[in-house]
Write a protein that binds this DNA or RNA. Structure first.
Lengths: 127, 127
DNA sequence: CCGCTGTGCAACTCTAGGGTTGCACTCGAA
DNA sequence: TTCGAGTGCAACCCTAGAGTTGCACAGCGG
């Protein structure tokens, strides 16, 4: 539960790193909206150069968040929900795990507190 | 659905950025395991200095992923599942959204294809 | 009161990576 | 075959931020 890789062998690390960049998220938005687009087209809708977009797409591709397909002389990219979905599940599971742990710790703390009160009432001289 | 802030007013951007760093995730792991710990304690279990840990904890705190509480002269930190959970839901919703979009696009593409075949059979001279 | 431990603050280094520009290459259309 | 649009590659800035060190400050225990 600490690391985690989805079915495609893409680490959560890569996906989170990819998602951390605002431009990249914007890119994903555009792609989700258009369904399919080239780096050149996408760059027109962003305040960055085509090359920057290409780099970002490469990162997203490595993370499994998009796929690139060649059509003639252009490269069409499309969004790929699987990786995102997998990461979402991973996070949800992690959150649940934390909840369980916190609950357990809380219980232990309360138990320890009761123990201490017991010690107060029964000093060291007992059997 | 593009941005998103949880109930506490913490942007998804901050949470993703916080989660993007491996050391920070490691830190969250340790915290989830111990339930509560100080920066100094946590630093002992990591290959970085206490100061580095303090900085990371500050980031995680801003992102709403941990809380700091002062006990005597030390500061105990604890994990905070709510923000993580909210982000997980956000991601899941986004993934679903992408799925819907892809589906719709696919349908449209197929419809357009049929349209085109129609045009082939009925050249412009119709009416 | 004094010393020890744990925090807080500040300045500084250094690298990853986001962004750019320039140019060479390829493929499709006229 | 030639022109142009689209892509790929490489070298290059520049800043954010991860990490460090040094020191001053605060609080608990003796």
């Amino acid at each position: 539960m600490t690391d985690g890789r989805d079915g495609g062998g893409v680490s959560v690390d890569e996906i989170l790193a990819a998602l951390a960049d605002p431009t990249r998220r914007r890119l994903l938005d555009l792609l989700a909206a258009h369904g399919e687009a080239t780096a050149t087209t996408l760059a027109e809708g962003l305040p960055v150069s085509r090359q920057a977009v290409v780099k970002h797409l490469a990162v997203l591709d490595t993370a499994g968040l998009v796929t690139g397909g060649r059509v003639g002389r252009e490269v069409r990219y499309a969004v790929r929900p699987a990786a995102l979905d997998a990461t979402a599940r991973w996070m949800a599971a992690l959150a649940t795990d934390w909840d369980r742990r916190l609950d357990k710790i809380k219980r232990l703390a309360e138990a320890a507190e009761r123990e201490e009160r017991n010690d107060d009432r029964t000093p060291e001289g007992n059997a």
